[in-house]
């Protein structure tokens, strides 16, 4: 199953995927450190203020821990550490957890700040190749909404395949 998904992921070029995503899709933009990212809003189940998160020994370094959202266990992942933007872990008033449905489980993405929802037209999305030919599979493009923001568009599925 997993293999199937990943193969499908490889089958589509990043551009194609950006195309699929690009039909005036709605993106939620958020900050990781000083960088702005966005994911399709359809991926997001809920935006939460941080709840108590229990750290899990032996987990991957990017895992902050587990928390309980109305009785459901959610693994919280620090996207900054995942993207190797930072080594330390921070959480403050503006921190939010994006609850996303990923690969059979609920995952909480810890982000530094939630910005706003952008509706991006196809013309407002650049292919990831502008950043260089070899881009990781979770980078699907660059959003340039009117107003001057620049957002790195993410596809969550490749992030949680393994």
């Amino acid at each position: 199953m997993k293999a199937l998904v990943s193969r499908r992921g490889e089958g589509r070029s990043a551009l194609q995927r950006a195309d699929e995503l690009g039909k005036r899709a709605e993106y939620l933009a958020f900050m990781l450190g000083t960088e702005a990212y966005a994911i399709q809003i359809g991926n997001i189940v809920e935006i939460l203020k941080p709840l108590p998160i229990t750290e899990v020994p032996r987990a991957d370094p990017e895992v902050v821990g587990v928390m309980s959202v109305r009785g459901r266990l959610v693994t919280v992942v620090d996207l900054k550490r995942r993207f190797r933007l930072t080594r330390s872990f921070t959480m403050d008033k503006k921190s939010r957890i994006l609850l996303v449905d990923a690969a059979d489980e609920l995952i909480g993405l810890l982000v530094d700040e939630v910005l706003q929802v952008y509706r991006l037209a196809e013309s407002e999305v650049e292919p990831p190749q502008v950043l260089g030919t070899e881009q990781p599979p979770h980078v699907v493009g660059i959003g340039r909404p009117a107003g001057g923001a620049v957002l790195l568009l993410l596809d969550l599925a490749p992030l949680f395949l393994d």
């Binding site: 229990t54 899990v56 020994p57 032996r58 987990a59 991957d60 895992v63 587990v66 309980s68 459901r72 266990l73 959610v74 693994t75 992942v77 690969a103 059979d104 489980e105 609920l106 995952i107 949680f160």
Partner: peptide
């Protein structure tokens, strides 16, 4: 409750 797949590596835990 079961821990998610993303915590597979954390051996020695039955759940939470």
């Amino acid at each position: 409750k079961a821990l998610g797949k993303s915590l597979k590596k954390a051996r020695g835990l039955a759940g939470a």
